[in-house]
């Protein structure tokens, strides 16, 4: 069970997400929608403890960090959603002593069986991405299911057969599809935008990809820099020089 499916057993389908860091606004709608769906879905409940206390703690499957990044003087605010990447080589599965963790051969989704998980937490130690959270009340591990109970659910309208986070994103920063198919929309998006893996050197081969923020355009679009005061011929230059002199004197 916790041995990974062999290459022969795998269908070649790699369902996953593509997250566009260029347009994510950090609104947390994906995290909230995920929580809402999954607290009554496959691995329900997603327990919150002391939800109205001063130290609330709860199991969430999606967490959105906010970073400042980029070279000095050109830094950008980047909102960074972090959830299970449904790795091709998930060590969280192979370390599981009970067989509760498994990777599906048919679509590559990594799941935990909440009926057989013993809550030893070793899978969370093996995951570099912090994707697995322990439910202190339920006593088992919780993780992103890629909304396995939505994407194949024929009771839902076709437009809703995507993970809840993707459906909720108001800026379309999250995309769902088959990353094993080079002709799929998500694969093309990754190829066009230079989508990348997180911590590629660790060899977990994450399926989910991140699209980098585009470079800042304010340099091209901004108005030309104002002409230096000292170069102008009108009377203001003298006053500016006076202020500059005063500034220098006061700064001593």
């Amino acid at each position: 069970m916790t041995s990974l499916p062999t290459p022969q057993e795998r269908s070649g389908k790699k369902l996953g997400l593509v997250i566009d860091l260029d347009i994510c606004v950090g609104c947390q709608a994906c995290a909230v929608s995920c929580k809402e769906w999954n607290t009554s879905g496959y691995s329900a409940p997603l327990t919150d403890l002391a939800a109205y206390g001063d130290q609330p703690i709860g199991a969430w499957l999606n967490r959105i960090h906010t970073y400042e990044a980029g070279p000095d003087g050109e830094s950008q605010t980047v909102h960074f959603p972090r959830s299970c990447l449904h790795c091709e080589e998930p060590a969280c599965v192979t370390v599981c002593p009970t067989g509760a963790s498994y990777k599906r051969a048919e679509d590559g989704i990594v799941l935990v069986n909440p009926e057989t998980c013993i809550g030893c937490k070793l899978c969370s130690w093996a995951c570099p991405y912090g994707a697995r959270e322990y439910d202190y009340d339920h006593g088992v591990m919780k993780k992103c299911t890629l909304c396995v109970d939505r994407i194949y659910n024929e009771n839902l309208e076709e437009v809703d057969r995507v993970p809840a986070c993707v459906r909720a994103c108001p800026t379309s920063a999250r995309h769902f599809g088959d990353l094993g198919d080079p002709e799929s929309d998500v694969s093309k998006m990754v190829a066009d935008r230079g989508g990348y893996d997180l911590l590629p050197e660790m060899g977990y081969k994450p399926v989910n990809k991140y699209l980098p923020p585009r470079p800042r355009r304010d340099k091209e679009t901004a108005a030309p820099a104002p002409v230096q005061a000292s170069e102008t011929a009108d009377g203001k230059a003298g006053i500016d020089k006076l202020f500059a002199w005063a500034d220098r004197m006061l700064s001593r």
Partner: peptide
């Protein structure tokens, strides 16, 4: 390597109090 972002620093964590990942 973890974020794919150059020169990154965290300016806002995803949660206001510690979660399981932080505690463990």
């Amino acid at each position: 390597a973890a974020t794919g972002l150059e020169n990154a620093r965290q300016i806002a964590p995803p949660h206001t109090s510690e979660n399981y990942v932080m505690k463990e």
